[in-house]
Design a protein around this nucleic acid. Structure first.
Length: 813
RNA sequence: GCGACGGUGGUGGAACGGUAGACACGCUAUCUUGAGGGGGUAGUGCCCAACGGGUGUGAGGGUUCAAAUCCCUCCCGUCGCACCA
């Protein structure tokens, strides 16, 4: 009978499900592996990126299960978010209905791939039970001052009608809809991720060699630690007066204290309080006020595009070391959100300051030797025009000047981060409600834990205009948890990235406990960290940074024990491409996984995705290469007729023919390679290639025992990749014996009667010799010389190198 | 500009410093004598006077008996960040 994937795959999928074959065991004395592929958003259908993601994870999970590890390999649904609301607007379906029916459909799709997920640990993040515990964490974070509410300038996407976190703004546009982001002043909830900036940066070191260096670099840049000097510029007496005595001065931060004698002006962000005060009291020309206001309304990207612009504010400050009077400008390139929104400007040693100074004819003062007139010199050198520091190397001066400031109590050495706090408020319906109440007398009050979850109302009207929760006639009415008076429920919902920040702990928590706690410490102690995490590079910052932060925060507020990092090892898979471009519906270059499985079966789909490229690289789709993968499985299936015994045979290696020996060697080469592939390199493509080579070599001989051994091992090796066909062949041929435990590599099979060696003269390959495997070095060299006699004529052999089992190199002159 | 990762046949990709191009796709020839499909066999980096030889891993240098691999300089590509003081 020929290979019929549909029949085989259906049979095994039913069987696995009936046997609950992939449930983790409760016995915590067992050695564990936690293999996790990032959970999908239930968009409606699986795409090839999912197939790749889950094929990789499943291969690892099945491998470790076969090595007798206790394996946790769960799946769930990242189920809150905008698309559900968009679907509601478009087709009038309720987001909940849309989401859960998508989940049902996609679960079937995943099943049809034969993925070895635990069925009992599945959940959706929109389940009220999940929301309940998340709300508890949020309240606790508020109590521990990790969460706060504040009114500030936020990124607003008018298309999505919601606020976005800084991490969700890509080149000034919304990460989801690509609409240009606006700035808006409004209240919101923030998680104090900055409190963990240093720990998040430091602990990246623990992940070196285990996470892709690219991701580590991206996170490190994002956190953006820099060290320098912070000090106050005091306003001159006249300026103080001008500002009505409301300001003494302003703070600046610099990483270049060594250039402090070169300061010729200072610059404030348009949002700086002093600028606001000047505008408020109309102490600037009407025209200037208008322009500054216009800049305030621009996004950072718009400001960058606009080029440098600034205005003399007509006030001055006193240089802390020279006591010179220095003008204060407003400049559009100064960011309000970093370093206090004010800078000292050294045009001679900073390119931005130079550009600005040139544009507005501000004075230049060189304080570091090197470079040339008419440009900013940012390199190292010796200080000049810097009083007592003249002649000092600038790297030393940095330290010395900070010390001076500290001694004179003028400023201090300090550290700054680019990382900003995580804004988690979203003005949308389909998310977890933020469990707070606004009371007229008590202010902001967290909901009582026993009242959780604060669930979403079902009867909402979703139009895309405004916040559906806010528009709901009654939902927000409640009583104050503190004083009992009439109060209003918070209508913001949590960013969906909050849900994906702790799901790895929820899976680890035994489902029997899901009703009684959010996270079980004991279970987490056993299962975490995730031994291998697999997902797309697009989450390098967003999700992976938030989840790392959440882990540390949950630890500090007592929900988990001493866990430093949630994900021990990370594999970022490449994208699936078609004709060099990312597969997408809008481009119409997609391959539908359902159709692929229908035509060739899940095993072919899985084999192709793992064979066509190493998992970390991009995968170029190729229809005829899929055919090739299918062809291989057909061939493998057909060879079952060659098998003559139902167990791993004992073979007298020395009695075999050359072809038989070679076939065994190829089979065991693949076996030897497999450990490295499954545990270290994940180069599944090379393991599959080795299995193909082995089958090709088996085809060149016809010894029943060699065939039996070969099939026994090949189906063992490929089972994590193509589980159905291997389970089928293994059951039929070997009573499934080869799918449990390890198979030992036999060294004897690598012994061949003769060895083929390449012979090179001066490193150039000239001939090939066949020598007995027992041949001595001298014998090999003399035979080698004979084979390349014509290259040695008239020359002296000055050196002879024999690389065992590989080649001979003769160096001649 | 800063950071990370790459550059190997027609294509996807292999190569502990040791025979470059494994494995697969594609292509050519041929057999399976209707076609189509499927399968088998042989060939397939490039160049040349072609049973032989030359050359070859983005370019150029270096280290080494030996370099795709290590070091230096440069070029190109992909991704991320980007006026962060």
């Amino acid at each position: 009978m020929s290979y019929n994937p549909k029949e085989i795959e259906n049979k095994w999928q039913v069987k696995w499900s009936e046997q609950q074959a992939f449930e983790p065991k409760d016995d915590k004395s067992l050695e564990k592996k936690y293999i996790l592929s990032m959970f999908p958003f239930p968009s409606g259908r699986l795409h090839m990126g999912h197939v790749r993601n889950y094929s990789i994870g499943d291969a690892m999970a099945r491998y470790y299960r076969k090595q007798n590890y206790n394996v946790l390999h769960p799946i769930g649904w990242d189920a809150f978010g905008m698309p559900a609301e968009n679907a509601a607007i478009k087709n009038g379906r309720h987001p909940k209905d849309w989401t859960y029916s998508n989940i049902d459909y996609m679960r079937k799709e995943l099943n049809s791939l034969g993925l070895s997920f635990s069925e009992t640990r599945e959940f959706a993040t929109c389940d009220e039970l999940y929301t309940k515990w998340e709300q508890e964490f949020i309240i606790k974070m508020y109590e521990e001052k990790l969460l706060y509410r504040e009114s500030t300038t936020v990124n607003w996407c008018n298309e999505c009608q919601t606020v976005l976190a800084n991490e969700q703004v890509e080149e000034g546009c919304c990460w989801r809809c690509d609409n240009e982001v606006e700035l808006k002043e409004m209240p919101g909830y923030y998680l104090d991720i900055r409190k963990y900036a240093d720990e998040l940066l430091e602990d990246l070191k623990l992940l070196e060699g285990k996470w892709p260096s690219q991701v580590l670099a991206m996170q490190s840049n994002w956190i953006g630690k820099s060290q320098g000097l912070e000090f106050t510029f005091k306003l001159s007496e006249s300026s103080k007066e001008k500002l009505g005595g409301k300001f003494e001065g302003f703070d600046v931060f610099t990483t270049r204290p060594d250039t402090i004698f070169g300061v010729t002006y200072t610059a404030l962000a348009p949002e700086h309080p002093i600028v606001k005060e000047l505008i408020k009291n109309e102490l600037l020309d009407a025209e200037v006020i208008e322009k500054i206001t216009a800049i305030s309304n621009m996004t950072e990207v718009e400001r960058a595009k606009a080029g440098k612009e600034g205005f003399d504010l007509g006030i001055t400050v006193i240089h802390p070391l020279t006591n010179e009077e220095i003008p204060v400008w407003m400049a559009n390139f100064v960011l309000a959100s970093y370093g206090g929104g004010a800078v000292m400007s050294v045009p001679t040693h900073d390119e931005r300051d130079f550009e600005f100074a040139t544009q507005y004819n501000l004075p230049l003062k060189y304080v570091i030797e090197g470079g040339e007139e008419g440009e900013a010199y940012t390199g190292d050198g010796v200080l000049i025009n810097s009083g007592e520091f003249n002649g000092m190397k600038n790297s030393d001066a940095k330290v010395a000047i900070i010390k001076l400031f500290e001694e004179k109590n003028l400023g201090r050495g300090t550290t700054n981060y680019k990382l900003r706090n995580w804004g988690v408020s979203r003005q949308r319906y389909w998310g977890a409600p933020i469990p707070f109440v606004h009371c007229k007398s008590c202010g902001l009050v967290p909901e009582k834990v026993e009242n959780l979850p604060i669930a979403l109302p079902e009867d909402v009207e979703i139009t895309g205009e405004g916040n559906p929760l806010e528009k709901h006639p009654t939902w927000s009415n409640c009583s104050c948890p503190k004083c009992g008076a009439e109060a209003k429920r918070e209508t913001d919902t949590l960013d969906t990235f909050v849900q994906s920040s702790w799901y790895q702990f929820r899976y680890a928590t035994h489902p029997d406990k899901w009703n009684s706690c959010g996270i079980d410490k004991e279970d987490v102690n056993y299962w975490l960290s995730v031994d291998q995490y697999i997902g797309g590079i697009e989450h390098a910052i967003l999700h992976l940074l938030y989840a790392r932060f959440f882990t540390k925060a949950l630890r500090d507020i007592g929900f988990i024990d001493n866990l430093k990092e949630p994900f021990e090892r990370l594999l970022t898979q490449g994208m699936v491409l078609m004709d060099g471009a990312k597969m997408s519906k809008s481009k119409g270059n997609t391959v539908d996984p359902d159709a692929l499985i229908e035509k060739y079966g899940a095993d072919t789909a899985r084999l192709f995705t793992l064979f066509a490229a190493p998992p970390q690289k991009e995968l170029e789709w190729n229809d005829s290469a899929v055919e090739g993968a299918f062809r291989f499985l057909k061939k493998l299936y057909a060879r079952k007729s060659k098998v003559t015994t139902n167990e791993l045979p004992t073979i007298d290696h020395s009695s075999l023919s050359k072809e038989e020996k070679l076939a065994r060697a190829k089979v065991y080469e693949a076996l030897q390679k497999s450990v490295d592939v499954y545990e270290k390199t994940f180069a599944f493509n090379t393991l599959i290639a080795s299995c193909m080579e082995a089958l090709n070599a088996l085809d060149k001989q016809d010894n029943g025992l060699v065939w039996s051994e070969g099939m026994y091992i090949i189906t063992h090796l490929l089972e994590p990749i193509t589980p159905h066909i291997c389970a089928e062949l293994s059951e039929e041929l070997f009573s499934s014996k080869n799918l449990a435990g390890k198979i030992e590599v036999l060294d004897e099979v690598f012994e061949q009667d003769t060895i083929t060696l390449a012979v090179a003269v001066n490193g150039k390959r000239r001939a090939e010799i066949e020598v007995a495997s027992s041949a001595s070095k001298d014998e090999i060299i003399s035979q080698a010389k004979e084979s390349v006699a014509k290259w040695l004529e008239g020359k002296n052999v000055v050196k002879e190198i024999v690389v065992p089992n590989k080649m001979v190199n003769l160096v001649v002159k």
